[in-house]
Each structure stands twice: as structure tokens, then as C-alpha cells.
Nucleic acid binder design. Sequence first.
DNA 1: CCTAGTGTTATATTTATCTATTACAATATA
DNA 2: TATATTGTAATAGATAAATATAACACTAGG
Lengths: 129, 129
Amino acid sequence: MKFDDKVPIYYQIKQHVYHEMMTGALQPGAKLPAVRQLALDLTVNVNTVQRALSELIAEGTLVSQRGKGNFVTSDQELIARLKETLIMTQLAVAYDQLHGLNMSDDEIITSMQRYIKQREVQTDDSIND
Amino acid sequence: MKFDDKVPIYYQIKQHVYHEMMTGALQPGAKLPAVRQLALDLTVNVNTVQRALSELIAEGTLVSQRGKGNFVTSDQELIARLKETLIMTQLAVAYDQLHGLNMSDDEIITSMQRYIKQREVQTDDSIND
DNA sequence: CCTAGTGTTATATTTATCTATTACAATATA
DNA sequence: TATATTGTAATAGATAAATATAACACTAGG
């Protein structure tokens, strides 16, 4: 995994877990890889992984069972709320950033549409996502 | 100015300058406030301001004149290219983030439209931008 | 009971960032 | 020619983040 060196790694790992939960790669109740394995996969120190997971555990997104492993919560209600929050937060961030570049509401929509169209063209010869 | 404690301050100051150039608050050739004044305004150290400006100077966005001040480049061509780059970068970031939350291209557009509509309602009793 | 695998915690070291402070270099102006 | 204002640079100290390493705590399985 590639990290943005402008943002703490532990924070990016948190986002990574959210991401996998949203895409379904991590289902409710699913067992995560062992922390030492995650550290290897992400090419990062165990303590850094642990810091990210600790925060996710503290907020209830993950459940830790000493000696067994870390698991995604089975509380579907909590996951649904989390998803809503993540989406709304990202929409707000995206809007603010574009609006901050002096784009009007209409320009934001149309330029995003244009970007997506152009992106489809650039990838139409591959079988990418 | 409020800073995100997850991102280096000097980096956020760079973005702040870009922002002001895009909105027209900083026109081509315009003189910036003195570095010591900027430090006061932003409530940060002079060295932190200097680090941000140094990078902007190195890339040609700003021009420094020792004893006189720092100025926005008068190279309109460079500014136009910068604007294009900033917008395309932000569109890509926004798209990737939302797409990463498992949203389809259509969902990205429609949810952004919904977000903007809802935002208008929430602010329709004020004279905010 | 022992061992392997799991999460958890602690210490020390390194690096990046930010700060405070001081000094130097160039320009404008009184 | 002074003096103030500007950008620039250097030093030293504080803090946060990440690392390497080691140890501890719990669980499962032979």
C-alpha cells in the first residue's frame, strides 16, 4: 500500500479499514489479519498498526479479542451510520475543496461529469474496475 | 486561519496561497504581505511561512525580491496551467475518495447534486457565499 | 502442560515539523 | 548616510510519528 507522506500513516490505515468495510472486502463480523501480518502487508511497524486499530476499537468499529484476533463489529446499525458519515464527510470535503478553487455549484457538477466521462475514455481499452 | 493537525502547516499555507490566487484575492503580480506579517496573521512562526513560500518560489508561482517583498508571478500562462492542474488534481482526489467508498459514477454525481441542493436549503436564510 | 499464535504494552531511537531567537542581506527612504 | 523594512538563514529546543525490539497476556490445540 502506498501512503501519502503528508498524513500520519496510522490515520491512513484507519481510512483503509473503513474503505474495505465499505467495499465489502471486510464484512460485518469478519476477522482481520493478525496485527503482525497487517504490519508486513502494509510494510509498517506493528505499533503503527496497533495505533490505528486501537482507535477503531475505541469507537466500536472493531472488536478485539485477546488471543483470538480483531473483528469487524457485527452491529449493522453502527456500520450503516458509519457509512453515512463517511460519505457525507467526503462529499463535504470534496465540495469545499472545489468550491475553494472558485468553482460555482454548477461548475462543480459539470466538471465532475466531464472528468468522469474523460476517465471512461482513458480506461476503455482495459478491464479495470 | 484554522489548520488541520493531520497535515503539515507549511503545506496548508501553500494551499492557502493557491486558493487566494484562484479566487482572485491575489492577482498576477500582486505583492504579498511581509513574511513577518503573514506569520502574525496565520499565528505561526516566520520559518514556517518561509518554508511554504520557498517552495512556491522554487516552482515559479511566486517571485521573491529581497528587501522588497514576495510577489505573485506575472506569468499568466503559468497561472493558467497551475489552475488547470489544481482543478484536475482536486477532481481526481474527490472522485477517488468517493469511488473508494464503493460509489458508482452515477452515484457520485447524483449524491453530489443532492448534497449541494441540501446545502443550499441549510444556508438559504443567510447571505453566505 | 507446553507451544504457537493472537492482541497489548513499553522503551529507546530516529526523523519531520514547528517554534523561538538571532543574525545577515538587500532595498527604500528620511 | 542612517534607519526601517523587507527577505533569508542558522541554531537550538520541543513535540509527534514511526521504527526496532522486547516483553507480557490470553487462547487454542497437541
